[in-house]
Design a protein around this nucleic acid. Sequence first.
DNA 1: CGTCAATGCAACTATGGGGTTGCAGTAAGC
DNA 2: GCTTACTGCAACCCCATAGTTGCATTGACG
Lengths: 104, 104
Amino acid sequence: MTDTLVTVFAALGDETRWSILTALGEGDASASALAGRLPVSRQAIAKHLAVLHEVGLVEPVRAGREVRYRVVGAELAAVARRLEVVGVAWDRRLAAIKEIAEGL
Amino acid sequence: MTDTLVTVFAALGDETRWSILTALGEGDASASALAGRLPVSRQAIAKHLAVLHEVGLVEPVRAGREVRYRVVGAELAAVARRLEVVGVAWDRRLAAIKEIAEGL
DNA sequence: CGTCAATGCAACTATGGGGTTGCAGTAAGC
DNA sequence: GCTTACTGCAACCCCATAGTTGCATTGACG
């Protein structure tokens, strides 16, 4: 269960990839276009896009000779939901311990 | 805004750290105790705990001569909420584009 | 006080991955 | 058809970091 989750987090744990994601958040773009406004080479961006695509955070769309990428917000929301479940479970355990400690 | 978020994801993007977090999810434990049931050395776990502590996912509690760690579910939930906001925003943009494309 | 078990600190290794450059392939447009 | 611009692949560099071992330190407890 958590194996895909970890890879998604690993994908999100990089500044450059967040730059790419937020840039795509303002509109679809190709690797070359992104290379124009980010301080890294096109190939570096292409690698990042491949990583993001593998975890489902981004989707390639062929448009003629260029490949535009679209950000997939639904995937982020899904991850968020799974995260919240885990976090709440941990806090519930803490709350339970607290009650026991207070002799309730 | 996203700078802390990225570091949290970087912290979560590691299998061993997830093992530690899930182990702590079942009950507080010290670095030595965790080293007992995980296939890595105590020092490696200590480093991971330091990382997790820096991003607020875990909290040290001195208990005599040992230091037990408690997982902080609230932090995870907070991250989840921030994530969901971003994801929903991206999807709203997509929905808006779709409406425009459909000439609505 | 002496022993034992736990933590903390430091040096070291090595693998992964972010970044680069270079070149080949491929599709638009004149 | 030729040129141009974008993508794809491959080899390479380098730094961050996950992991190790070794030793010093500190607090419990008989």
